[in-house]
Write a protein that binds this DNA or RNA. Sequence first.
DNA 1: CGACGCCCTATTTTT
DNA 2: TAGGGCGTCG
Length: 710
Amino acid sequence: MLIDYKTELNPAQYQAVTTTEGPVLVIAGAGSGKTRTIVYRLAYLVEQGIPPASIVLLTFTRKASQEMLARAGDLLGMGMHAVRGGTFHSFAFALLRKYAHVLGYEKGCTVLDRADAEGLIKQAREELGLGKGDRSFPKKSTIIGLLSQARNKELVLKDVLRKDAGHLGCYEDDLERIGQRYEDLKTTYQVLDYDDLLFMLEKLLTSHADILERERATCQYIMVDEYQDTNRVQARLVRLLAGNQGNVMAVGDDAQSIYAFRGANIQNIFDFPQVFPQATMIKLEQNYRSVQPILSLTNAILAGSREKYAKELFSQRESSQLPELVKPLSDSTEARLVVAKIRELEQQFPLHEIAVLFRAGYHSYALEVALNKEGLRFKKYGGITFSDAAHIKDALAFIKLVANPLDLPSFRRAFAGIKGVGPKTCENLFHALASGDQPSLEKACAKKPAIRTVMELLDSLRENQPDPLSALEAVYAYYKPLVERTFPDDFPRRIAGLDELAQIASPYNDIATFLADLTLDNPDQLSKDEAEQDHLVLSTVHSAKGLEWSAVILINLVEERFPSKHALHSDEEFEEERRLLYVACTRARDYLGLFVPTALYNRYYNSNDPANPCPFLQEIPSHLITEFRERYAGGLIQVSGERHKPTRPTSPAPSSRSNTAKAPLPTACQHKIFGRGTIVEHIEPDKYKINFPGFGLKVIVRDYVEIVEG
DNA sequence: CGACGCCCTATTTTT
DNA sequence: TAGGGCGTCG
């Protein structure tokens, strides 16, 4: 035996690794060595003689599975390429391509990314003549979001609107029709959106018993990471592939479920023991990442939630430094203070070990400006990404047309680069080509000779079926000069981006795989091994999932930003914001800084309006955090923490157990005026200190509130 | 038909 | 702040 599992893993991890037969549910707290467990389990399976080709590893991003496979390969001293790994979506698309002949996609089909799907929504709306001149008609990105949500949650559009977008209720019929048309367009152009991949696979497997049998035989050991963020189809697919007795391990943490907005169903992880009745349940509770003061704080955040699989996270990493709560005067001064804090942290940690996290992409704009002014290098994740950039999409459009000549969205991109050719011309051209209307084609080519050039380029690509790299080179010969013309101010950057794309393409042998990987797993996902480059990381909390840094700063922790204002009206969404904050804070190993601006700048009135601090922070006992406020004269003043109370022990109990899981407080309650709130403290004999979202902390007499049991 | 410019608005998170 | 609606000119 190569690896001494017993000494390298703790007992719970060891059990998870060695329980290979039958269903297993692993509840893995934040930082509890979940990745390590999966890596060792992969190695263990292979050591037991399981052929790698019969193992499936489904993860949230492809990077995650690649890293795990690489690490398992290192342990064993052999490659693990034969293991099927990736996202549900890429796994599904691979199977759909394998059985394309059964599905009637012999001519090829391609996957729509978000922008392409929006294009088809726009087309559907225009064709139906809906919302003309109506400025408050939902925009295409909103529409595609709603339609996708309905499919992912498996609800009818009406219910999605009522729950999440009540103000759009009057457009229900229009949206319904647009959705219908959108489905038709996808069929016509032989394209699939993200949601189709999952549902089509389910349909394929349920309607072809022979295919199901064959695939089950090759999926003998299934591991699913981030199970709390799977949606309903994904759970059904797991069950389908595993069979009732199957060897399936689901790994997840209900406290970290943050994708409900796209259909993730937290119920999946609760139902696992019922769906697989013989399931073994294992909890990983020792945290190896964070120092105890950070963990005490995150435990306090979670104390107010109703976690089903209660965990008691504890750490052996002691520290005398408490997390910091910094209150800048406003969000405009916040950026400056954050920069100063980063300068300070830089003395202690390398720049790439520092991250700034926020709720929404645009929350970092002010900070980005300040960082640029300061000359601090940073990389942002979760905003506009490499593969969203126009020039990258343009270049890929040509390649996509090789895989699927009917892909109209790509067709549009490819031809719209020609000067004087817009949406209408593209449309006509496409229809002329599709219906073999030679005279119209000739006329168009005579008018714009460049049309012929592009058609010939595409034809030669389809004739020769080159590998992705050669195909891109042929495209670049035409497209690069065009980039210089259309982006005069920043074409060198874009050309460099195209070269990077060629780099990505070079290892691939066939176009279909290259395209699938690119649209289903974006290449600029954050990964741990990017640490080499010395830059600060800015990221949305969602994009930071699964990652960790020595120092983490959270900004804009005020109500309506974090939690998002969309989440304030519903209990479920509000609780998801809590988990999101929990995920954010648990990314930190040694330093955690929470920035709460006291006021928000209002451009419209050119004034600063007072803001409510993030309600979850109000619930945190003050001895767990050191608080600073910004002085008018600049700089910070410490207003709480050990300096003022030197007698208080600096870290919670010396015992390694967390000390937050004892009291039944806080509990949710309901107040006639303030609505739903969380009880923070019982003030003897008959009062409660209660935190009401939107109103802040209040002391209320017991008789005036109604206790709501979780 | 397409390019360009002006103005208004509504602003989450992503495979 | 950017995307989209709308008007104007080529």
